[in-house]
Simulated scan of single mutants.
Amino acid sequence: MFLKIYEENPNPKDIREVVVELRKGAVVIYPTDTIYGIGCDINNAKAVERVARIKNMNLKKEHLSFICHDLSQISEYTKSLDNATFKMMKRNLPGPFTFIVNANSNVPKLFKNNKKTVGIRIPDNNIIRDLVKELGHPILSTSVLDEDEIIEYTTDPELIHEKYHNQVDIVIDGGYGDNSPSTVVDCTQGGFDIIREGKGELEY
């Protein structure tokens, strides 16, 4: 399915239609505030494994991330955030950042690496945030392409659909995407360590 949704004002009917499919185990390509993402319901292990196969990822070694709707949803999946981390996230979210935090037991096992950490995003994009809100829990977040392969079809939804329509269930056309990944910030060591410079410029 190739579905046009307008980012400024996503149609609730379209959002519900996608969420019905996500609950059945669909794999979806969706817009964010950076590169287009490919993901699924984080609680559906088979769908997560499908994404891993499409992206050629090893789930035991990969550092997986997911998208939350807001800060209160982040707190459901992390060990308690200290005051400085919470304030810093509040200043920068929604935005083009992936924050690595200590995971709690609500995070599915597939997502936890040996350090028991997880990457969390709240993109500044109404389509994906509305999907997460309607679904009721986070959606797996991994970019359509690896960063060293960023070329035109990462940004054009029609070309993304052309390439991936046999591998995924839905491609959402939310307009042209960006070709810069998110800035990755490690918050697990008591400070804020930028481990990948991307689109976002962190405000402390």
Rank of each mutant, 00 (worst) to 15 (best):
I5G: 02
L140E: 00
F111Y: 14
K79E: 15
L202V: 10
I172G: 13
F2R: 09
C187S: 02
E76T: 08
F192N: 07
G95K: 12
D169K: 02
V19E: 04
Q73S: 11
K109M: 02
L81T: 08
I150D: 00
V107M: 12
K4D: 07
K115L: 14
V107Y: 05
D156S: 12
K46Q: 10
N114V: 06
Q167Y: 10
N83Y: 12
A52G: 14
G174L: 09
D14K: 09
V132P: 03
G190W: 10
L22K: 03
D148A: 09
K60T: 10
E201L: 12
V168P: 07
Y77G: 05
L81R: 06
S75G: 07
I100G: 10
L202A: 05
K115M: 09
I67V: 15
P94V: 00
V118I: 13
L135P: 08
C68D: 01
G191K: 13
N44L: 03
I5H: 02
I42R: 04
N58K: 13
E197V: 12
N83C: 01
K46H: 08
V185D: 02
C68V: 13
P108Q: 11
K199L: 15
V28L: 03
G177Q: 04
V144S: 02
I128T: 14
G39R: 07
M88L: 15
T183S: 05
D169S: 07
I194W: 03
V144G: 01
A103C: 08
S72R: 12
I172C: 09
K46R: 13
L59Q: 07
V18G: 11
D193P: 00
K90Y: 09
R196Y: 06
K61G: 02
I139H: 01
E49Y: 03
E162V: 01
E7V: 07
V144H: 10
L135K: 10
S65I: 06
P31Y: 04
D130V: 00
P138T: 07
E21Q: 15
H137I: 03
F192T: 02
N126Q: 12
K90F: 07
K4N: 08
I35M: 14
L110R: 05
E49C: 02
S65E: 04
D14A: 14
L93N: 03
V20S: 14
D186H: 05
K79H: 05
C68I: 06
A52D: 01
K46L: 11
L59A: 02
E8D: 15
M88I: 13
L59F: 01
L140F: 10
E197P: 00
K61Q: 10
N11F: 04
G190S: 08
G25L: 02
H161L: 00
N11P: 04
E158A: 11
D124G: 08
G190K: 05
H165S: 13
F111H: 09
I5T: 08
R121V: 04
N102G: 06
D70H: 11
T78E: 07
K87Q: 13
E17P: 00
I194M: 09
K112G: 02
R53H: 05
V185Q: 08
T85M: 06
F66C: 04
